[in-house]
Each structure stands twice: as C-alpha cells, then as structure tokens.
Nucleic acid binder design. Structure first.
Length: 560
RNA sequence: UGGGGCGUCGCCAAGUUGGCAAGGCAACGGGUUUUGAUCCCGUCAUUCGUAGGUUCGAGUCCUACCGCCCCAGCCA
C-alpha cells in the first residue's frame, strides 16, 4: 500500500545499471560479510536487504562470508545465529557459506608475494613504538628502522612467525606504502599479526592472522564480487583496498562503494553496547524482545516481511541519518493489520456478572478472525454469565468523550451482545472489584432499538478463557539518542518501564491452539506473539507493538 | 591547523544534459466503522546549510564561508 513493493532506486543501483549497460559487468555478485562476534541487529538487516536484494532483483548472486580474522572475539554460536537470522529474513546465499579463514593459505601466499616484490616487510617495533612512528592526523609518520630489511630476511622472519617461533606482538608484517600519506590507513598498514589463538574454523592451523584491510579485498576478488558494499567509515580504507589488489597477482578487482549505516532513535546499534547489555544482564539475552537484534525482533513478533519493507522504506544514501523508530513500527503494524488474526485478551481482568444470563449456559459465538479477510475464517468465542472486561474500560466517573463502560451505561461486547452496567462492588479501599450487568438479548449482530451503546469493548469468558502472562514491552531507552551524551553512560538511559508483566491476563481459547511465534491482534490492545518459552501449562505472549491510539494521545495532551 | 565525506519539510528520501521541489513516516483537520484500530478524504518546503556569482532561468554550475560525521586498533 504505502510502502514500496519493490526497492526504489538509489545511487548503488544507478552504478550497477551503468556497469551493466556499459558491459563492465554482465552479472551482479555481492556479499554480506559479518564478523561472527555478536548477533545481527537492525543495522545489519539494512545491509542484508541491500546486498541480497540486489542479487535477487538483478538475478545475480550474494554470498554469505564470515569475516573471521580475529579469533579472539569470535565464536561458533555467532556463526550459527547469523545464518539462522539471514534465512529467517528470507534470504539464501549462493552456494556454501564462505569464510575468510577458508582463504588463509591464499592470503598468506599473497603476503609472501608482496614481500618478494619489496612491498611488505616484517617490523619488529612494539605496538607502542608503531603508534609513535605512525605520526598524527596533522604530522607525517616516520620510517621504521626495520623498513628496509632485505627480502630474504623478511621471508625468513615471516616464515618463522607462521611457524610459531615468536610471541604475540614480537613482529608484524606491514605493507610498504607511504609513511607520509595524509591518509593514515596508507602509512604502512599492518597486514599480519601473531595470535596464538584457537580459531573456530581453522583450529590451531594458524598462529598468524591477516588484518581486515588485507583480507577483505582478497576475499572479494577470490569470490568474483562485482560490487563490494560497506558503510561510510570504510571510505578511507578504499585506497588500501585498491592498493592490495593492484599489487598482487589476482585478475579480479571488485569496486568498493560505501553507504550510510542505519541509526535508529531510542535505540543503540553498536555490537559492543548490545553485548554489554547482554553480559551485564540488563536484558535476558541477545534475543530479548527489547533488543534491536534480528533475533529480538523475531521474538517480539516482527515478521521478516515487515523488516524487509522497513529497510526498503528508509532508502540507501550517503548522508548520516537517524531513522525514527515510528517507521519500523509503521512497517510491522501495516503487515500485522493485514495478516494477523484477531482475538480478545483482557490484561487487567474485572469480573462482570450478567444477572439475566443463566448460570452454566455457554453460547459459542462465531466471530470473524479478521474484519476484512474473510479467508481467515471465523473463531469460536464462548459467552457465559461471568465474563472479564479490562479494568481500564470502566470508569465510575467518566471524562468527557468516554466511549467505554460506566454506571448505568450501555456497552457493546465486541462480537457479542450489548449490556448495561447495573451495579458495582467495591472493596474497603473504595476500589471497584466487580460489576453486575444485564444483557440485551435482541442485540447479537443487531443494533439495539431505542437506545445506543456507548462504545465497544473487548471481553473474555471467566471460566472459558485461558490464563496467560502478557509481557508489555516498550522502548529500551527513554531518550532519543542514548549514546549521544559523551559525559553519560548509555546505561543510565535504560527505560525502567521497558517491560511490564501482566501476570493475571486472560485470553480467549482460540489463541491457545496456535504454535509458538504465532501473531495476533488483540483487539483494542495491539499486536502480540506467542513467546517460544510458552508451554501447554503456561501461555506467554509478547506485545509486539500497540495499536495507534488517538484517544490516549488526546488524553495525554491535557497533561497527565 | 592533515585527509575523507555529508548538509532538500520534525524524521527518512527522490531530484542524473540547469527549466520552475516526488513519495513515505510523523503531525493536524474531517468522513466511515460492533477494534477510540483499519480504511477514506484533506492540510503540511514561494524553498533546497549560508553568502555572493554565472544564466532568460540554479537544489542542480562557480566561489567563499558555516555546520555535522569518520580516520592516529597488532578490531572489523
């Protein structure tokens, strides 16, 4: 409807169109290259949709390649979660999963080639010295005293690094480029370092690991990538990407293009910070429904389709930007409004006894599962003498404009009869704890004669409903830019009300028949999904997002 | 004070030989409605960071400013 069915044009598609038109390429090959050091988040979703989406639309290919050159931070659990998340989003990579580590031998051989050409050398300065020799943003660097080591010595040292003859930090391999370059990435960048670490893919086969800047262009070239897409912060690395490919014996030379990474307000999208939230238990895990991870959104009830549509709707450009989470919420509401079956769930039960309904009588009402989708069928909703309505739908002293129940007022029970409140029962503190009402038998599917109902509210049979726990999620952070204040830790902005548990909720029985992850609209409340932790004995539902609420908005205006 | 980028409506974002500012989100009115939902209709940039210049005509070209982001990991 409002969101585009197919990805709109952007500068990358224009480049591809031109490359295809000029004959530079006959096919598009992209890749999604995550480092397996955390779960994928919404920012990765943008990259995934871009790279895989391009492959789909141009009938090309997109590889999934793990950029696993730093065993210290990586883990097998992450390589598994990443594959699961990419597939859940609806994409399939071309052929087998690739690993940069799978190219370690070739990468090593290219390093040897650079040494032989006099374009790389083993440096024996320590980390601190290397930093000093690198210079600053405004001052050029200086040559390392080891820069002019003879080729034979470099070859020997590098072989011994590989053989495990040195400790971490003793020697590194550097590309010999230009210590005076205004681009710091070109000041003899380190391309190999010693790491006596077990690697999740290669085990203990290697104790030297190539750096990203050396690994990435080679991996892209080996795979025949045509368009290597990455985020803006790598723009300064592009000259190095090209330098590597220009100086080794490899025919393919992919081109790198950069786009702006996704920022979302009220959210953090930094793997380091997300990992901190998990490690310090501010959330229950990477898949906590409040996390902006793919796994979190999945558990929260987001659909793959909604995330793909969202990614299309935000576009791809080179301008730093922060997207309003309202865009994401719009995408999931749009999907679920169209596709989610409806049901009724009472979050704060208030018992109503319908005095003119016989005790023990159960009438099974046939209610459409969706107001517009007849194909979704009907559900059976039992109506009995005792029902529950939401405590917030009754007001002893209703404000102006109130369209719910009040003493003596008439209300339509959604999908059922119109009833009139006849009495209320209060506890010692003056709280209303139960209501009595009378139903109008001539109002099932028909408007009442001679009077009008004040509104429509949802309800559930007291003994024919299913008890459940409903988790009401709200944004994890209470400020738009949680890491925008350098003097304050982002954890200070965690929303203390990001999770509210409604443990006494009751849901209509139709819901209990659905499997985990099923999504519903609980009428007048919002969209909800069955949490995977649910069992027959304990049903748990997660609120994905609320319905738009013009009444709540109006109430909020008057100050509250 | 080095280098690389970016600045079009509150938030994204089209705008490709200079020709007279798309669209979405949000917001705000109104209509329909057994969800205060959905849906429908309408309003919402004489202006494109600023200032000059070229031109019949500039968001698009030129100049100079201003602002914001990234880079000094043996991370990616």
């Amino acid at each position: 409807m409002s969101l585009p069915e197919h990805a709109p044009s952007n500068f990358i598609r224009q480049i591809i169109d031109a490359d295809l038109a000029s004959g530079k390429h006959s096919q598009v090959v992209t890749r999604f290259p995550p480092e397996p050091n955390g779960y994928l988040h919404i920012g990765h979703a943008k990259s995934i949709c871009l790279n895989f989406g391009l492959a789909v639309d141009y009938q090309g290919a997109c590889n999934l390649r793990f950029d696993d050159t730093n065993p210290e931070k990586e883990d097998l659990d992450y390589v598994q979660s990443i594959q699961r998340d990419v597939q859940w989003l609806g994409f399939q990579w071309a052929g087998e999963v690739r690993y940069a580590s799978g190219y370690f031998q070739q990468i090593h051989d290219f390093a040897v080639e650079l040494i032989e050409k006099g374009l790389a050398y083993v440096d024996s300065l320590n980390a601190e010295q290397i930093r000093e020799y690198r210079g600053t943003l405004t001052e050029p660097g200086r040559h390392s005293p080891y820069r002019d080591r003879p080729v034979a010595e470099n070859l020997d040292l590098f072989a011994r690094m590989k053989a495990g003859g040195f400790a971490e930090g003793e020697h590194v391999l550097r590309a010999k480029i230009d210590m005076a370059s205004p681009n710091i990435n070109m000041r003899d960048p380190i391309i190999y370092r010693v790491r006596h670490q077990h690697h999740h893919q290669t085990g203990d086969a290697w104790c030297i690991y190539p750096m990203y800047d050396f690994t990435h262009p080679i991996s892209d070239a080996i795979e025949g990538i045509t368009h290597s897409l990455c985020t803006l912060e790598f723009e300064d690395h592009r000259p190095l990407y090209d330098w590597v490919l220009d100086n080794i014996s490899i025919a393919c030379h992919p081109r790198q293009y950069e786009f702006a990474r996704l920022n979302l307000n009220y959210t953090v999208t930094s793997k380091r910070k997300l990992k901190q939230l998990v490690d310090e238990k501010h959330v229950t895990g990477w898949d906590d429904p409040r996390m902006p991870t793919i796994a979190g959104f999945r558990r929260r009830g987001y659909t793959p389709q909604s995330i793909r549509r969202f990614c299309e709707s935000i576009g791809v450009s080179r301008a730093d930007s922060t997207v309003d989470v309202a865009m994401l919420e719009h995408a999931i509401r749009e999907d679920l409004d169209e596709n989610a079956p409806r049901a009724m769930c009472v979050l704060r039960p208030l018992k109503v006894t319908i005095e003119n309904w016989p005790a023990g009588k159960v009438e099974v009402l046939q209610v459409p599962a969706h107001p517009k989708r007849e194909d979704l069928g009907v559900r059976e909703v039992p109506f009995t003498r005792e029902i529950y309505i939401d405590a917030e739908d009754f007001s002893e002293d209703p404000p102006k404009g109130w369209k719910r129940l009040y003493p003596e007022g008439h209300i339509r029970l959604r999908g059922g009869y119109v009833m009139q409140c006849t009495a209320m029962e209060k506890d010692a503190a003056g709280q209303v704890i139960a209501l009595t009402a009378r139903y109008d038998e001539k109002t099932l599917g028909v408007n009442p004669e001679g009077y009008k109902a004040n509104g429509v509210i949802h309800w559930v049979s007291a003994d024919q409903s299913v008890p459940c726990e409903v988790r009401l999620y709200d944004r994890l952070f209470s400020v738009e830019n949680p890491d925008g204040d350098k003097s304050r830790d982002f954890l200070e902005f965690i929303n203390p009300e990001s999770l509210q548990v409604m443990s006494a909720a009751r849901v209509e029985p139709s819901v209990a028949a659905y499997p985990a992850e099923s999504r519903f609209q609980f009428e007048r409340e919002g969209y909800f999904a069955i949490d995977p932790s649910s069992t027959k004995g304990k049903l748990v539902l997660n609120r994905t997002v609320t319905l738009r609420d013009s009444w709540g908005k109006e109430q909020g205006k008057g100050g509250k």
